[in-house]
Design a protein around this nucleic acid. Sequence first.
DNA 1: TCAAACTTTCAAAACTTTTTGAAAGTTTAT
DNA 2: ATAAACTTTCAAAAAGTTTTGAAAGTTTGA
Lengths: 170, 170
Amino acid sequence: MKITEAKAQFINSWGALGSQWGINRTMAQVHALLLVAAKPMSTDDVMAELNISRGNANMNLRELMDWNLVDKVLVSGDRKEYFTAEKDIWKVATAIMYQRKKRELDPMMKVLTQLSNVETSGAADAEEVAAFTKAVKDIKKFTEQADKTMDTIIKAEENWFWSSFLKLFR
Amino acid sequence: MKITEAKAQFINSWGALGSQWGINRTMAQVHALLLVAAKPMSTDDVMAELNISRGNANMNLRELMDWNLVDKVLVSGDRKEYFTAEKDIWKVATAIMYQRKKRELDPMMKVLTQLSNVETSGAADAEEVAAFTKAVKDIKKFTEQADKTMDTIIKAEENWFWSSFLKLFR
DNA sequence: TCAAACTTTCAAAACTTTTTGAAAGTTTAT
DNA sequence: ATAAACTTTCAAAAAGTTTTGAAAGTTTGA
């Protein structure tokens, strides 16, 4: 397989994966492009490689910087901005976990906490309230554990994580 | 807070969460509705609660059954089909993990394996090929570990999981 | 200070996904 | 066998998301 073809396929699959997980397909593709790039790329490079507009390239590069997956780098003798992706996959994974937890899981946790206080307004809906309360309580308990686990992983060193994890599961 | 309000908020938040993670918002809402329901619901019940069409309700109920999150139940003396959600959150989480791994992660893994074989076609692209190969290799290695970890979690007993796993990660 | 080189913004257009609802299909009771 | 009760399908419409590109904004070097 040739490098051009291989790159295209990687970008394509990474884009599809992102898209299936609620990430803008183009953002994932830009990320993929930078992940496998040998050196920093400019906005124009990204535009040319992915056949996208300047606005689109700019927007997604900035979004990737917000996620701490991409950094600006200065190339001396050039006025353009260049971009590189974080290549350490453990760091990539924990950055994504951190962001998604913060943006999407934490708000759900907050709602679950609020919902733990429902009044039983009379005998009429006792059963309904009981079912609701139990479900919310269970989901909250699970989410709290998952939350703690994720916090640990986010802070963990890669080697420590894999080695202690593997010890448990063998 | 009143039960009706609380339910509505839970359904809303669960729907938003699903949506952010690439799951059809209505599918997540139907799931939420059934998760907190005191007893099985018919298609008409779901339609009425969520204000959605028959086609939409039917489609999402079937999809939830495909994910093994919802089951048909027979209510004697009624010709309609009724539906309940799996309420054990550990089972819910592992079912979701299993499905998403199978549908979305496994295909990526397959692509990564294929991409491990790229030719260095001359000295011109040596650097480019090296960067690509290293990135793909690293991602593949990480994904393999994550894969194994997920398989273990999916097969694990809830109690065993929380007791041994969380001793480490808290 | 100026203007060239570059980045950002955002309204409108293009595209994608979801929803609707009526028609077709299936099951069940008599 | 029939018809009522129900479920499924799917083409068209609606809603939601993404992309474009040109105008506005910013930075830099002479």
